[in-house]
Simulated scan of single mutants.
Amino acid sequence: MTVPEPVSRTSPRPVRRTVFTQGWRDVTFLHWAVDPAVVAPLLPAGARPDELGGATYVGLIPFRMRRIGLLGAPGMPWVGSFAETNVRLYSVDEQGRRGVVFRSLEADRLLPVLAARWVAHLPYLWSRMRVEREGDQLTYRSDRRWPGPRGAGGTVVVRVGDPLPEPGPLARFLTSRWGLHQTTGRRLAYWPNEHPAWPLYAADLLALDDDLVAAAGLPSVAGAPDSVLFSPGVDVRFGPREH
């Protein structure tokens, strides 16, 4: 079994050609530790659960997408900006590349949802969503429209705390992800990205009413998360998919 690459706060594989750009803003990271055997059947063939201390993690990540741009062109201000929430797992492939596997990605713009599903083959879903901020408190709301199960969603409320000048091993493991794994044409593909190191903050979870994790095939994941983090965000470049 290949040893995973070291966890690095900057990309170990710089993107040489830009396929598209995104801005990720007001990002909250909620994570639950789980037995790797729970998520292994949900990963594409050729990827296995990435582990830290014998556990892997399930992430619920609400945020604001800002100005998606294609092929280096300026980002689109309206159609490319929307609220999003994803449920993701942590993966490593036979080349040792660490990444994520998306189980679902909620977004409140229909056109990007359709494009991502049909062109990029990512599990995007159309939802009513809002992100509200009052001082150091953020509220994320989602309510799935299409495809089902209709009404899946919930509310996340967090209070942002102090910056983390030196994130610990778990925070680095969860946020230092430089690509996503997915199956394309019956082969495992890796879609690399690069961005500055995440500016991370401690955060307190004030309220959580969620069924997106269960709808993503993980009904046994419940209770208070094991990690709560916040970031004001980063700008991201994606390169061409690799095998």
Rank of each mutant, 00 (worst) to 15 (best):
L42N: 05
L42W: 02
P44G: 12
P44C: 12
A47W: 02
P49A: 06
D50E: 15
D50C: 10
L52W: 04
G53Y: 02
G54Q: 09
Y57M: 08
V58P: 11
G59Q: 10
G59F: 01
L60N: 01
I61T: 08
I61P: 00
R66Y: 07
I68L: 15
I68S: 09
L71A: 15
G75A: 08
G75H: 01
M76K: 02
W78G: 08
W78A: 13
S81H: 05
F82L: 05
F82V: 03
A83L: 05
N86C: 05
V87M: 09
R88E: 08
L89C: 03
L89H: 02
Y90S: 07
S91C: 06
E94F: 03
E94G: 15
Q95H: 14
R98F: 08
V101C: 14
F102Y: 07
D108T: 00
R109D: 02
L111M: 10
P112E: 10
L114M: 13
A115H: 01
R117N: 14
W118N: 13
V119A: 15
H121N: 12
H121R: 15
L122P: 05
P123Y: 04
L125D: 11
S127E: 04
R128V: 08
M129V: 00
V131C: 14
R133S: 14
L138P: 02
T139P: 10
Y140P: 07
S142F: 02
D143C: 10
W146C: 06
G148M: 06
R150Y: 11
G151V: 02
G153L: 13
G153D: 11
T155H: 10
V157K: 12
V157C: 12
V158H: 05
V158K: 05
R159N: 09
R159A: 14
R159L: 11
L164E: 13
P165S: 10
